[in-house]
Design a protein around this nucleic acid. Structure first.
Lengths: 189, 189
DNA sequence: GACGATACGGAACATGGTTCCGTTTATGCC
DNA sequence: GGCATAAACGGAACCATGTTCCGTATCGTC
């Protein structure tokens, strides 16, 4: 038999409650808070989403998929592979920066978030690898850098964005990507 | 009256126990563990080090001071301000990378570590600012970047070092710093 | 409407930080 | 040395949070 109707309803309610809680308190929002928002018991959360990572992935799956889909699209549209790469990384960084605590969770090393990390990598590293490869092939980016390390670095640079007004994650990501260019790089300010 | 002798002894014991616990379990080592290592009650820890940040700062103070002192020394010795900057950042990154969980704690945003963050910034940002300023003055580094953001970025890039063998924090820091060079940058591999 | 499978709720448990206070110990004084 | 006092100690108790478990309620079917 398929899932029961109430279960399906609860799963949806939970996703909305979790999304709201994540906005309000970050992806570490207490389980009890999420349960309370959804009007269910904590047991119900664990039944639908055995680990916190499952819940986070479920909440952000759409956006991760959009980000993944944006890669080939940008490569097709943009003026150059390098431009596509820069733009895509901007999309990726936007996503991380606007999700309170997500960048931290991704890199926390906390076992709770291991499968979250894995999902992001599985889904986005191949996309990034294509962009990076194209930019290398076009002679704009140095070869020898792996997509996974670039993603890791960009993800790291997103940490703390919005906490300290003196730190602009996108600006530093720009510096990093500039450091990947083959000389001479654009004299970006 | 000065501090009691047993108190002084305990403080020392605690510092050693904490250092050992930090090596074994990272800077988030449970308070009870540290207390057990030192053979004291948890209350004793809180009396000597009201916040976890105080304890961490006490444990690493020497090394932070050494790092701060290395700045002017490198500037005096190195072939160029840029070389001094690169070398100093390497020293700083080494420090963070070898202290399990320290980079994460610094950027966690957790209130527990706020004063730790503040101590690092107070102590090291001015040093970095001097190096950066010298490298800008010598025409090797683009102007317009603040020491605090560079430090923040470098600290961020140290997160996860040693957890994923595919990620080499120093390599990515190298890319970042290369991105700060005035064109043309060295064609570093 | 009754029955079995499914799902639910929330108490109970585990873990880790933090507080508090009764007890112990060091120190200065006689 | 013995005592009074302040300082310091230990660890139980408390709080917050994640996680498990099972008695109860609900759904879907016959």
């Amino acid at each position: 038999m398929a899932k029961r109707a109430d279960a399906r309803r609860n799963e949806q309610t939970l996703l909305e409650a979790a999304a709201a809680a994540f906005v309000a308190a970050g992806v570490d929002a207490p389980v009890r808070d999420i349960a309370a928002r959804a009007g269910v018991g904590v047991g119900t959360i664990y039944r639908h989403f055995p680990t916190r990572a499952d819940l986070v992935v479920a909440v952000y799956r759409h956006q991760v998929e959009e980000c993944a889909a944006a890669g080939p699209a940008l490569l097709a549209e943009a003026a150059s592979p390098h431009a596509a790469l820069v733009h895509w990384i901007d999309v990726f960084a936007d996503f991380l920066v606007t999700k309170h605590g997500l960048a931290e969770a991704l890199q926390s090393g906390d076992a709770t978030f291991l499968s979250l990390h894995a999902y992001f990598l599985d889904r986005l590293v191949p996309v990034c690898a294509d962009l990076l490869g194209a930019a290398v092939a076009s002679g704009e980016i140095k070869q020898g850098y792996e997509a996974v390390e670039v993603m890791h670095a960009v993800g790291n640079l997103c940490i703390g964005a919005g906490r300290d007004p003196r730190y602009d994650a996108r600006r530093m990501i720009g510096v990093l990507i500039n450091g990947l260019r083959v000389p001479p790089p654009a004299a970006a300010g």
